[in-house]
């Protein structure tokens, strides 16, 4: 990776962390498009108790142990950006290596 690319990736990561840690606590907590439609059209209850995977470590973007406020949301954002970057970068690196080998 050339220097310029390193700078770009660093800057984009800083922006992502700022959005996920500092701005996310101010996000609207209204239901999103699908959730609202499900509510209005009376099928939201179909999802109740239907979760197949129930072991998410940070359910609903709130870090356990930090309550439900800005700290919990910001910490979830921090973890999410770090994990997503690591996973995406790692996967891409793995796929790229396959070609060289």
């Amino acid at each position: 990776m050339d220097n310029n690319m390193k700078k770009f990736v660093f800057a984009a990561l800083v922006v992502s962390f700022v959005l996920a840690i500092l701005l996310s606590p101010f996000a609207s907590s209204s239901p999103d498009g699908l959730e609202k439609v499900a509510e209005d059209k009376g099928f939201l209850s179909k999802a109740e108790g239907a979760e197949v995977w129930e072991s998410s470590p940070i359910p609903d973007y709130a870090m356990p142990g930090l309550g439900e406020g800005a700290a919990a949301t910001g910490a979830a954002g921090l973890a999410g950006v770090a994990i997503t970057f690591a996973f995406g970068y790692g996967l891409a690196k793995l796929l790229k290596k396959k070609e060289v080998a």
Binding site: M1, V15, S16, L19, A27, A82, F87, G88, Y89, A92
Partner: peptide, 16 residues
Amino acid sequence: VPLLGVTAAFIFAAQM
């Protein structure tokens, strides 16, 4: 390779 990683991270952040 890094672009894919950072694009995924940005999308995650913006989706919050």
